[in-house]
Design a protein around this nucleic acid. Structure first.
Lengths: 182, 182
DNA sequence: TGCAGCATGTAAATAGTTACATGATTAT
DNA sequence: ATAATCATGTAACTATTTACATGCTGCA
């Protein structure tokens, strides 16, 4: 049921089509959840049947009619109920960490390349989030209304920092291995 | 196919029954992957059929016969091939972070309680990993053989530290909310 | 007496991904 | 020309969880 509530949270900020919601749930756009479009369409349909969301159908020329979804009072109430119940602590599921436990089975240079790739990826992502933090929430904008979204953003930034710290420890060791290899 | 390789990595350290492997993959035991026992049994069966693992059947009185699995040469070779191909970067999928973006919809005291619960949980987990790091890898034990497992452990510790840092930011804000609430 | 641990497995359900399908428009 | 964007959806598959099933032993 997680995706269901993730969508409700997304719709809290305003109405949107399944397509738009799906875009936000694509790899990397939002930090904390990922979902493909068929999953989102089917979940929206279920919630429309339950009356948690409603949609306005807008016909378009040369495109399928778009459905603009918004929360209903029922949906908002269900969301509020969920908000007060603890969320499950998710398992990690990162094969890269598993791989490291037996890193001696890999080719050091390839492992190093993989870490450098991850580091690059993480730095790019982090830059985006830091940008948002600076333009939206820093300095003047200390409106308590934005405090929660900002704190949520902090989760991403802090996590990325941690990953980078770990990557640097890996790189340090792997570089010694690659040097002695040649 | 991730679970498959996670099991192979696990079997690298030595033989084991499905039951034992499943225990290690339970919530919280290993840091980086989670799996239930039916999933592990079925994956072991598939890999036995492919010849990546083999097992020795040991009859027992009053218990079902146990199967002690170990890697075959084929399994080890497949694992080595996998080691040299980059692992996918996993999505995060933590509803707690999502929840924070609309934290104003929750009851502050309940949200605070949830954060404190997570903090406690994380500190307990981290203590276990730090213990392992100190007893197994610190001081005298600078054997390069243990360098990779140690680095893998560092991923957990560094990640936990990051979570704790974030939790403290949340707690600081939520405490002001709870105070002004009463 | 009742629960945890050992040890296997099957069956059913839910969650999530990938491929297929359509079709016009705009940018490269 | 080709790919990306808009916008929906279905179908098939893979991954994962939960419930059911068995049965003995040792502990509180």
């Amino acid at each position: 049921m997680s995706l269901r509530y993730a969508i409700l949270v997304d719709l809290c900020r305003g109405e949107g089509t399944g397509y738009e919601i799906a875009k936000r749930f694509q790899e990397g756009v939002g930090f904390s959840w990922k979902a493909s479009h068929p999953q989102i369409y089917s979940e929206l349909k279920k919630m429309a049947d339950m009356g948690w969301v409603e949609f306005e159908k807008i016909e378009q020329e040369s495109k399928p009619a778009k459905k603009i979804y918004r929360l209903t009072d029922d949906g908002l109430n269900s969301l509020k109920l969920w908000m007060d119940t603890p969320a499950e602590i998710p398992p990690v599921r990162d094969m890269f960490i598993i791989k490291m436990t037996v890193g001696d089975l890999a080719t050091p240079s390839k492992l190093l390349r993989e870490v450098l790739e991850r580091k690059k990826f993480t730095m790019e992502k982090m830059a985006i989030f830091q940008q948002i933090e600076e333009t939206h929430y820093k300095n003047d904008n200390q409106d308590p209304k934005y405090k929660f979204p900002q704190l949520s953003l902090r989760a991403a930034i802090i996590t990325f920092e941690a990953h980078l710290k770990w990557f640097d420890e890996l790189i340090e060791y792997l570089e010694t291995l690659v040097k002695s290899e040649s």
